[in-house]
């Protein structure tokens, strides 16, 4: 009993305030990354499906590199590596470096879902659009993408959930977000419950997001086309 009371006391006075600060950073990381991740993901996908020579190759190389390289290494490159490059070296603070790394990662994976969705839009849709006098750009903007993005929602929300989780890697380049906040408290007090509390916060974030994503998917489903 005594131990329980002590743990609750520890949580209220030390752990929760620290985690609250960390959670702030995690939420900021995720909310800033996500819109850019989706926008660039769509651009990459369009580049890969419709792009000509250069654009197409750049998009492919980018996605291939980002998917093959561990995110943590990408963060190291952005945070520790770039400042050392002669002449062009840029120095980012940990927050900015994390955001850039996450946007790269998120957009690369998002582009896979969007690309798949674009390819799955039936050819007739483009033909009908052309027959009405739409330019290729108009047809992509008004006909293909609205359909593709709807179909990509499950994949995109899946990626959003991954983003919540891998945002913890920002701690590896010194940014004290949720996981980092927990780790610092743990190192100071050696209280074994710390990582379970941190875990519960992540589970809550992920579970709430999943429920939200399912609702979103329902809302944007085109009537009459629910999954077989």
């Amino acid at each position: 009993m005594d131990e329980t009371a002590q743990f609750i006391d520890f949580c209220i006075n030390i752990l929760f305030p620290a985690l609250a600060d960390g959670l702030m950073i995690t939420v900021l990381l995720v909310l800033i990354t996500a819109p850019f991740g989706i926008a660039f993901g769509v651009l990459l996908a369009v580049g890969r499906v419709y792009g000509k020579s250069y654009g197409n190759w750049i998009c492919r190389l980018f996605v291939g590199f980002v998917k093959g390289c561990p995110l943590m290494l990408l963060l190291f490159i952005l945070y520790f590596g770039l400042p050392t490059v002669p002449y062009v070296g840029v120095t980012f603070d940990a927050f900015t470096a994390s955001i850039i790394g996450f946007i790269c990662c998120n957009s690369a994976y998002n582009s896979e879902y969007v690309r798949g969705a674009i390819i799955s839009v039936k050819e007739g849709q483009l033909i009908a659009a052309s027959a009405l006098g739409m330019t290729k750009r108009q047809a992509i903007m008004y006909i293909v993408l609205p359909q593709a993005l709807r179909r990509a929602i499950p994949g995109l929300s899946n990626e959003f959930i991954y983003l919540i989780k891998y945002s913890s890697l920002a701690y590896m380049i010194t940014l004290v977000e949720l996981t980092g906040a927990g780790k610092i408290v743990f190192t100071k007090y050696f209280e074994p419950g710390v990582f379970f509390v941190v875990g519960i916060v992540y589970l809550a974030l992920v579970t709430v997001t999943t429920v939200g994503a399912n609702a979103l998917e329902k809302k944007y489903a085109v009537p009459g086309t629910q999954k077989r």
């Binding site: 989780k165 891998y166 890697l169 996981t179 990582f195 992920v206």
Partner: peptide, 18 residues
Amino acid sequence: WFFRGLPVLVLLFMFYFT
């Protein structure tokens, strides 16, 4: 649900330190 909901980093800390 548990293992898919947690970051790898948190799982590693949780198992390694606790």
